[in-house]
Nucleic acid binder design. Structure first.
Lengths: 133, 133
DNA sequence: CTAAACCTTGACGTCAGTGTCAAGGTCAAG
DNA sequence: CTTGACCTTGACACTGACGTCAAGGTTTAG
């Protein structure tokens, strides 16, 4: 099939597909006129690439995955790719931890501000009492 | 003080400091020769900017924070900046949730792979028994 | 025949925060 | 005076996954 059809069948733009091909993630034959010619398996491959991207892998990382990622369908994952998954998992957990730290610091600022505004409210209230009834 | 000293006292590169100034986060006078002239308060300001960046704010966002962020030291935060903090907190929590989803998907892949390899191990073991003792 | 729709490669734009030249002015010490 | 350290502005480099425009060839429907 030509790139337009593959794009339609995967929901990925032709531009992105060319990008994946240039990155070595996809292989395509050529028609006599120079048009790319994809086989049916390309649909699954593109979808697989999209899944990998959603998992947080860069195209470069995905390119290091061996062919076994594709040969047996999505369920079969060979040991090299498996290690990449473990590494990525670790990376993501580190990222999560960092973000949680950030979140906690932000919460601390907000709590301090709330505390402080409560303080001023009490101070204002005391002033109110002193001058009020 | 000149930019080099400020850089040394904050651990931020002169290049970054000029960038912060151009972004409107810092104000500097000029000496007769055109050199930037920072006051002592600039040290705290730069450190504050660094803190904000670590909290995940872009320079553009930081630029929208009013002067009150600086006037009272780090502890005093006015309401406008406070809202920005709440927004950023929400943003970060969304980000964390997304990453946790990713992590879970990765874990699912790894668990599936482990399960599968256990299956093949059992299969191999059965073959072993059949041909073995 | 022609317009529309599709394909090709190449190359620049985006976002953000710097790093890193380039080309030059300034200033203190020797 | 000269060297060297420090300062100035301006502008390109980088990362990543594309979007988008350019300029052109191909094919298909009418």
């Amino acid at each position: 099939m030509k790139i337009g059809e593959l794009a339609a069948r995967t929901g990925v733009s032709p531009r992105a597909i060319r990008h994946y091909e240039k990155a070595g993630l996809l292989s395509a034959g050529r028609l006599l006129n120079g048009y790319r010619d994809f086989g049916d398996e390309a649909v699954a491959e593109v979808k697989h690439v999209v899944r990998m991207i959603r998992l947080g892998f860069s195209l470069e990382e995905i390119a290091t995955f061996p062919a076994c990622m594709f040969t047996g369908g999505a369920a079969v994952v060979c040991s090299v790719a498996l290690q990449a998954h473990r590494d990525k998992l670790e990376e993501i957990e580190t990222l999560i931890a960092e973000l949680e730290e950030r979140r906690d610091r932000l919460l601390a600022v907000l709590r301090a501000a709330a505390h402080q505004s409560a303080e001023s409210a009490r101070a204002a209230s005391r002033n109110q009492e002193a001058t009020g009834p």
